[in-house]
Measured scan of single mutants.
Amino acid sequence: YETDHQDYCEVCQQGGEIILCDTCPRAYHLVCLDPELDRAPEGKWSCPHCEKE
């Protein structure tokens, strides 16, 4: 299903190369994640907010 994702990072509120959560509309820079990621994850990815739930 399609979600309207943010076009900015949930953490720093800036645009650029962001990865999109497959569960919610949030988006993140790899370096803004904690722990940060070296590269975009393959397959489905859930953001830290969704992982907690």
Rank of each mutant, 00 (worst) to 15 (best):
Y1D: 06
E2W: 12
E2D: 15
T3Y: 13
T3A: 07
T3R: 14
D4E: 11
D4A: 14
D4R: 06
D4I: 08
D4C: 10
H5F: 07
H5M: 15
H5R: 13
H5N: 15
Q6A: 06
Q6C: 03
D7S: 08
D7T: 11
D7V: 10
Y8W: 09
Y8L: 15
Y8K: 14
C9I: 02
C9V: 02
E10H: 13
E10N: 15
E10M: 05
V11S: 15
C12N: 02
C12Y: 00
C12S: 00
C12H: 00
C12G: 01
Q13F: 12
Q13M: 13
Q14C: 11
G15I: 07
G15R: 11
G15V: 02
G15E: 06
G15C: 01
G16P: 03
G16F: 08
G16S: 13
G16C: 05
E17P: 02
E17G: 06
I18W: 08
I18S: 05
I18T: 14
I18V: 05
I19G: 07
L20I: 13
L20Y: 13
L20K: 13
C21E: 00
C21P: 00
C21I: 01
C21V: 02
D22F: 04
D22V: 06
D22C: 06
D22Q: 15
D22P: 09
D22L: 07
C24K: 00
C24T: 01
C24R: 00
P25N: 06
P25E: 13
P25H: 05
P25A: 13
R26M: 09
R26T: 12
R26A: 06
Y28F: 08
Y28D: 02
Y28L: 10
H29G: 01
H29Q: 00
H29T: 01
H29V: 01
L30K: 09
L30Y: 13
L30R: 11
L30E: 08
L30H: 10
V31R: 10
V31Y: 05
C32L: 00
C32P: 00
C32G: 02
C32M: 00
C32K: 00
C32V: 00
L33N: 04
L33A: 09
L33Y: 08
D34L: 10
D34I: 04
P35I: 05
P35N: 07
E36D: 02
E36T: 07
E36V: 11
E36Q: 07
E36C: 14
E36Y: 03
E36F: 10
L37T: 05
L37V: 08
L37G: 09
L37P: 08
D38V: 12
D38L: 06
D38Q: 04
R39G: 09
R39F: 05
R39D: 08
R39L: 08
A40W: 04
A40T: 07
A40H: 03
A40N: 07
P41F: 05
P41D: 04
P41C: 04
P41N: 11
E42D: 03
G43T: 08
G43L: 04
K44Q: 12
K44T: 05
K44M: 11
W45G: 04
W45I: 06
W45E: 09
S46K: 09
S46Q: 14
S46N: 03
C47S: 01
C47I: 00
P48T: 06
H49S: 11
H49Y: 04
H49M: 01
H49A: 07
H49D: 07
C50T: 03
C50Y: 01
C50N: 02
E51M: 03
E51R: 06
E51A: 06
E51T: 08
E51K: 07
K52L: 04
K52N: 11
K52I: 04
K52S: 12
K52V: 04
E53V: 04
E53F: 08
E53I: 04
